[in-house]
Design a protein around this nucleic acid. Structure first.
Length: 661
RNA sequence: GCCCUCGUAGUUCAAUGGAUAGAACAGAGCUCUUCUAAGGCUUCGAUGUAGGUUCGAUUCCUACCGAGGGCACCA
């Protein structure tokens, strides 16, 4: 449609003899006005061309409009063209909107786009912006032995959403997660465990793990992970406050890298497994399934090797047959090996890559990681590995990444242009100051839990008495407890559905509050607001969907019924005003494309809120299902189109839709 | 001190250089004998300061003020 209007304008300009010289430099821009009252499409071309035409923008616009009217008279899809303050506004006809509703309902049927690795999309709203690109997205990055905090939740929500947006834009995406299983933080946690008298007893617990379909293991894993988190906090505090402890932790760190101490190895293996298992539980709740996990234990040695190979004034003999093309960009300084970034760009600063103990720092590990990422995906068919490597990081790492990127551009110029870092803001708190050192962090898990509990309460109050004590049919069926529901099938089903709903809504509340704003900005986290579920929230979107679904159920319209209706039938049925929701629905693919181009999910989030609001208004204004009104059928189709768009849009944010709320 | 990011209603967020700067929450007032009121409708209210570029600036440039982050062996 947009192209059609642009073509029209081009012709008009030709007719008016306005397309010479500089005008060709002015691109014709046709866009949606912010306000629906200003038409469906709009262009400011008259304002751009007025200086050359030597008349005022308004006069020129008037001229163009007259010409346009003459030309588009026969067009069924453009109803009206007007000049308003120099803008030329196009109003689309009912005919266009009916077609667009039809297109939405037919979109994606039988298409293969968007179906990857068992993930299916109805795939309305897709585009080809990243067609045939292989992209790795690395996100979440929690560290074993440390708590999974809200920042990780943020990274996960953003990463998962971007991944899905890339997929629907035609990319082949690999989900990756880089986790720091070695490093000082691990040593701090191990130190804490070693110093803790009770540690031993907890340490033995995993051996007694009950069988897996009992609910206990997940709880136990998370309990133990929490314990390890506490030990980390203890170690971390001691490291800063107690020089003695600092020394001990340093020792432990070295031993972990070398794997030289039996007891430490044992604690290490246990703690690593427990914390990773606990993370896995969280990913499951959040709806992420990673394709690859990278670990610092693996990237460290590789990074170290790269650094040594590119060291100026090699004191260490290069490995036999080692590369002769060393760049010599790293230097020795105060016993450590550094990269003097200022030499290449005065805005950058020096970073340590190998410590004076010859251990790789985060910088060296990241260097190694980048190399493996590209190697891992390199095949005979795609020797270049990845087309794009995206890493979701916290903003505090921005400067660091610039330095690493500089190093990569010097050593591996062929891949440096394909690396992209997307940095997100920090989670800050509205009320109390949270410090990870003091240990009163809000963990990702506790936030999820609290969010779900808040919903459970709301369900209790407003839907029906929660209770799982099912009403006895009349005669003596004994009271049933939730975990005994398997015996009573219908109720068990109900209970499961309710639990699923609570989980979906809880996750939606958190994810939406993260994704509704630009990635770069800090999030001021207000717990009370995040669980309010009103207005600008994830549950509001879900609620709108569920309402629409209830309408459809009332209309008893199965999916198959739609096919009975032909296009011509549709037109004859619809003789009513155009609703705002129709004017928004057809824009969804444009919004998705915009999100993909900018890699910003919040455009979709904001659009969905607008869409949900327009549906709720529509819902309030007219009775959708009305047997005595022949237009009712078209309103039902709008409702269906709304549901499809909402579901796909929420999918792109990583949010599921329940059947009932 | 140097570098990065960000300053929009009381609060939390929107706005490819365009029209009357949009929402939500909080405040005031309506609205369920009608498809789920977690809803809808009214109403009150904002671009940190000073310059510059432009027909036009919340958006681009400069300075200042304010918030957060980074700046050598943590990640």
């Amino acid at each position: 449609m947009q192209d059609k209007i642009i073509n029209l304008i081009e012709q008009v300009l030709k007719n008016l003899n306005l397309e010479n010289d500089g005008i060709q430099n002015e691109k014709i821009i046709v866009e949606h006005p912010i306000n629906l009252e200003n038409g469906d499409y709009s262009t400011n071309i008259a304002m751009l061309l007025a200086p050359q035409a030597k008349i005022s923008p308004k006069e020129l616009a008037e001229k163009i409009v007259l010409e346009l009217k003459a030309m588009s008279r026969s067009d069924l899809e453009i109803e009206k063209v007007e000049n308003k303050n120099g803008f030329i506004n196009f109003y689309l006809s009912k005919n266009f909107f009916e077609n667009s509703i039809q297109e939405i309902l037919e979109a994606g049927q039988g298409s293969t786009l968007g179906i990857q690795k068992g993930r299916t999309l109805s795939c309305y709203g897709g585009n080809n912006f990243f067609a045939n690109k292989k992209i790795m997205v690395d996100y979440t990055q929690p560290n074993p032995f440390k708590p999974f905090h809200i920042g990780h939740l943020m990274s996960n929500s953003i990463g998962e959403s971007i991944t899905r947006i890339l997929e629907i834009s035609g990319a082949k995406v690999v989900r990756a997660n880089y986790q720091g299983d070695v490093g000082l933080h691990v040593a701090k946690a191990v130190w804490g465990i070693l110093k803790d008298d009770n540690g031993k007893s907890r340490f033995d617990l995993p051996a007694q793990r009950p069988n897996s379909d009992c609910k206990l293991p997940a709880d136990l894993v998370s309990q133990q992970a929490e314990y390890i988190g506490q030990c980390y906090v203890a170690g971390s505090t001691a490291y800063e406050e107690n020089p003695e402890a600092k020394k001990e932790i340093s020792e432990i760190n070295k031993k972990i890298y070398e794997k030289s101490d039996e007891e430490i190895n044992k604690i290490y293996d246990w703690g690593r497994k427990i914390t990773l298992d606990a993370f896995e539980e969280i990913y499951k709740k959040l709806g992420t399934k990673f394709d690859y996990y990278f670990f610092e234990g693996e990237t460290g040695p590789i990074g170290q090797k790269i650094v040594l190979e590119n060291l100026a004034d090699l004191e260490v003999e290069p490995p036999l047959g080692g590369s002769t093309s060393k760049s010599g960009i790293f230097e020795k300084s105060e016993g450590a090996i550094i990269f003097p970034a200022e030499k290449y760009d005065p805005k950058l600063h020096t970073r340590v890559f190998l410590t004076n103990q010859n251990l790789p720092t985060y910088e060296a590990k990241e260097l190694g990681l980048t190399k493996i990422k590209f190697e891992k995906e390199s095949t005979s068919l795609t020797p270049q590995g990845l087309d794009i490597s995206i890493t979701i990081i916290a903003q505090e790492q921005d400067e660091l990444m610039k330095v690493i990127n500089k190093v990569i551009s010097l050593i591996y110029p062929e891949i440096s242009g394909r690396i992209k870092y997307i940095s997100h803001g920090m989670m800050r708190f509205a009320d109390s100051k949270m410090s990870s050192r003091k240990g009163n962090v809000i963990t990702g898990e506790s936030l999820l839990h609290d969010s779900m509990e808040a919903i459970r309460q709301k369900v209790n109050l407003e839907v029906e008495p929660l209770n799982l004590e099912v009403e006895p049919p009349s005669s003596g069926v004994p009271e049933v407890r939730p975990w005994e529901f398997k015996k009573v099938e219908p109720q068990a089903q109900l209970w499961r559905e309710k639990e699923e709903m609570i989980s979906m809504v809880g996750v939606a509340a958190i994810k939406y509050s993260i994704l509704k704003q630009a990635i770069k900005k800090d999030i001021i986290y207000d717990f009370k607001k995040s669980i309010s579920f009103e207005g600008d929230s994830g549950p509001y979107l879900q609620y709108s969907y569920v309402r629409a679904k209830a309408v459809l159920e009332k209309a008893k319209l199965g999916k198959s019924d739609l096919s009975v209706l032909g296009k011509s039938d549709l037109h004859s049925l619809a003789t009513q005003p155009t609703y705002d929701i129709e004017k928004l629905l057809y824009r969804f693919p444009e919004i998705v494309l915009h999100s993909a181009q900018e890699l910003e999910p919040h455009y979709i989030a904001n659009y969905l809120i607008e869409l949900a609001h327009s549906f709720n208004t529509f819902y309030g204004q007219v009775k959708i299902v009305d047997e005595n009104d022949s237009n009712s059928f078209y309103r039902v189709l709008i409702t269906q189109a709304f549901m499809k768009t909402m579901k796909d849009g929420l999918y792109l944010l990583g949010i599921q839709v329940p059947d009932r709320m």
